[in-house]
């Protein structure tokens, strides 16, 4: 059960992203945290670093499911509350899937860690295929114990 108090900061961005072009997502995160600081919010630095990593990993995963390696249109909403930070993605990439566990691949593996990292970082991760052309992702990270 989440608290119903309004978010301290919300940032919405519509981005064109490609697997090798995630600058827009980095930029949205930087603006988001900058706005949060302007309003006096001081989320723990480690939690902020981890949340940024989770958001970038999801964005990269979305781009990897783009048709023919092309770009995707991505709507990203970042929300900071007193006790948590959330990200919602809506994208038009192909269907994705969530791994069942947060288990890391072997230490010699060069890929396959992205969503396992996200699972280790966040308190909630949801993915849903919406209709035939859209995906919806949701991440929540608690900043204080639930």
């Amino acid at each position: 059960m989440q608290l119903t108090s309004p978010p301290v900061v919300v940032r919405r961005a519509q981005l064109q992203a490609r697997v090798d072009r995630l600058e827009g997502v980095h930029g949205a995160l930087e603006h988001f945290w900058s706005n949060a600081e302007d309003r006096g919010a001081q989320p723990p630095y480690n939690a902020r670093m981890q949340f940024d990593l989770a958001v970038i990993e999801i964005a990269a995963n979305i781009c990897e499911h783009a048709a023919h390696g092309g770009g995707v249109t991505l709507e990203l909403e970042l929300s900071l509350y007193g006790d948590r930070v959330e990200a919602r993605f809506d994208d038009d990439a192909g269907p994705a899937s969530l791994p069942a566990t947060s288990e890391m691949p072997s230490q010699a593996a060069e890929s396959g860690r992205g969503l396992a990292i996200v699972r280790r970082i966040v308190d909630e991760l949801r993915y849903e295929r919406v209709g035939e052309h859209h995906n919806s992702w949701f991440l929540r990270k608690q900043l204080q114990p639930e």
Partner: peptide, 16 residues
């Protein structure tokens, strides 16, 4: 300032 899972993959490939 920032490494993601792909960057780690590059380092692991280099290590090997």
């Amino acid at each position: 300032p920032f490494i993601d899972s792909s960057g780690l993959g590059a380092l692991i490939g280099g290590l090997r």
